[in-house]
Simulated scan of single mutants.
Amino acid sequence: MKAEWLYGFNPVLEAIRSGRKIKTIYISKQRHEHIEKIIEIAKVEGICVEFAEKDFFDVRFHKGHQGIAATVEKKRLLSIEEILSIPEEKGEAPFFLVLDLIEDPRNLGAILRIADAVGIHGVIFQSHRSAKITSTVCKASSGAIEYVNIAEVVNIKHAIDKMKKLDITIIGAEAGSGLTYWDIDLKTSLALVIGSEGHGLRKTVRDACDFVVSLPMRGKVNSLNVSVATGIFAYEVIRQRSLKE
């Protein structure tokens, strides 16, 4: 199998729980907390467990490895067609997230954690000039990446065109827009488009949006972290959809 590394307790645990194929789990000889849980599940699943010195982890991973890592099958990314079919299969109004050149892997991981929390049907990002799915992204998602449908596309504008043909409303998030996010109906089929850190939406992407909305800012700092803003927008969608007619 094509393998990649995961590190951190939650990413490894959720990879096991989700059924991702795991070759070997490595546990620090100095780690004692919660290892019984991992070892017990690994034994049931027939997964090899090896113990290693702390240096084994320190030289391979960023801080936060928590003395546990695993070699796992690479996460399967879906095609845009597969992603777009999910809402109909679930009998739900489409809710997608499109990322316009998010570059920081920790931001990407945090956004994937939000996507899982609110039940987004799929996250679409562009292969060029964007953060890739890496062990750092998996760690930042705290294991939520195992449950999020992700499509990597060559051009997100083409993906947006495919969505529009399915009558999916494209809503861009951009600071300084004349509309706030509560000014529009978010109960409809929609895709929320989030721009990159520092640059926002590219003009061609912004022009492809049906609406561009922003968060009202009353403080002295003119923007929020991209993952925080994504969370606020996403939960407004959930709030509106939960309201009784």
Rank of each mutant, 00 (worst) to 15 (best):
I111Y: 07
L6A: 08
G195A: 00
G67K: 08
H128E: 14
Y7T: 11
A93D: 09
I150G: 04
H34A: 13
R106G: 13
K21I: 15
E50Q: 13
S141Q: 07
S18N: 12
P87E: 05
G219V: 09
G178H: 10
P11T: 08
L243G: 01
Y235G: 02
R60A: 12
F51G: 00
V205I: 15
H62V: 11
I86F: 03
D183G: 02
H199R: 14
F95Y: 04
G172E: 03
V123A: 09
L166I: 04
E40M: 07
I238F: 03
G231E: 12
F61K: 10
I111N: 03
I133H: 02
I194P: 00
T204D: 14
I47V: 14
R206M: 12
T204E: 14
I184V: 07
I35H: 04
L77R: 02
S130C: 14
N149P: 08
T136E: 15
R202H: 04
L224P: 11
N107K: 03
S142K: 09
Q66R: 10
L186R: 01
I171Y: 05
T204Y: 13
N155M: 09
A52K: 15
G178Y: 07
L6P: 07
T136S: 11
Y235V: 08
G172S: 04
I22R: 01
V226M: 05
R218K: 14
I22F: 01
H32G: 12
F61M: 09
S85Y: 01
I80Q: 07
R239N: 11
I160P: 06
P216Y: 11
E45R: 15
